[in-house]
Design a protein around this nucleic acid. Structure first.
Lengths: 200, 200
DNA sequence: CGCAACCTTGAGACAGTTCAAAGCTAGTGG
DNA sequence: CCACTAGCTTTGAACTGTCTCAAGGTTGCG
């Protein structure tokens, strides 16, 4: 019973909504999106995952996966079987705490997305999103000066509750303002971004 | 070191954003709202709490309170000091699991709110909200036939990402359609509500 | 090279917002 | 017990940010 290293291609579904699994998956490289499917057919991308993120926290202890997770690029995963996880938890109670903290972190992000979706303009939503990606880049050793979007405009739009056309237009507008430069899926930040909706 | 019963009046703040506390609080009666304050001054009501709900899960294990919690009516709380909680957890490992499950439940609700905020019309948002309250009423022994709103229209509007005027208008419209009857803060359900955005 | 998916841009439509005024309700103090 | 007040709710009218629809441009892959 060992942790397993796994590699998969872009487009692969690595977790399915409602699923009950017996292993925790952690993204080691690449990017993924969490897609929440409503009964009526509507879909919402509730989160994006990057290296270090836990994919299926929800399936712990017999819970069900809240959303399907689809890879946005080729990626590698680390799979930790449930029994192994439990063995570790017995030796190391801090692990349970760490998982609870991870869950609270996810909740925090979902709540801030709620603030954005309920009160932000298209521009605020986009700036916040880019800012978040840049922060993430900083934390994982990047310069924070440019951001590579792993996802399509349509995915960004869906996540932020906008139309794809609006994302396109708003990016163009931000570029006119000299805030950033945008070429394909690479965004170069030209000024400090201080989204109106700051974390706190 | 015992659990404490506490009673407070409407309007009392029973948890503050960013706070680090050393006790878990559970709502025993009454209702409350969780208010997330952004640095810019914007506020979003991320959730409403009802009897049985845990108010400050986020403060467990040195975590910080994610949002302020304000009572919507006179209420009673049960306060469980951290040491007591930990003592129980040692005897009963299932308790840690239960807390993680509670956190995942909160996350689930936040995610569904996201779907609603990003893709639902005003009518869908309201129907979903009322439906949720009715379901809650059913679970706690009510008939599910009528719903008492513990919160103001403005609070409902804020939570659903609408203007208060829109909530008022939409309720009037739903009443015209014969779906429900609305008198003050009491809503009587006249037909089965099947929101387009079903849980799943 | 050709296809399929993605992205951009324009024009028009519309749901919901804002602002404002008037009606209602519940709590307070005389 | 009633008058008063502050906040909540409703409703109207005008406005606007974003959506939808559609057409053309671009990219990348087989």
């Amino acid at each position: 019973m060992q942790p397993q290293a796994i590699t998969r291609n872009a487009g692969t579904t690595i977790a399915r909504q409602h699923e009950v699994t017996s292993a925790l998956q952690i993204l080691r490289s690449g990017a993924a999106k969490a897609v929440l499917q409503a009964a009526c057919g509507a879909e919402h991308i509730s989160a994006f995952y990057f290296p270090g993120d836990i994919i299926n926290l929800g399936t712990l202890e017999g819970g069900r996966q809240q959303a399907s997770v689809v890879l946005l690029s080729a990626a590698s995963l680390c799979r930790i079987p449930q029994p192994l996880l439990q063995a570790h938890m017995q030796h190391n109670p801090a692990l349970a705490t760490a998982l609870l903290q991870a869950a609270m972190q996810e909740l925090r992000q979902a709540n801030w997305l709620g603030v954005l979706l309920s009160q932000g303009s298209a521009q605020e939503r986009l700036l916040f999103f880019i800012h978040t990606l840049a922060q993430r880049d900083l934390k994982t050793g990047g310069s924070g000066a440019y951001v590579h979007l792993a996802m399509s405009r349509r995915d960004v739009a869906n996540h932020l509750g906008l139309a794809a056309a609006t994302v396109s237009r708003t990016l163009a507008h931000l570029e006119e303002q000299g805030l950033l430069h945008c070429s394909g899926r690479t965004i170069t930040l030209l000024k400090e971004i201080s989204p109106r909706h700051n974390f706190s």
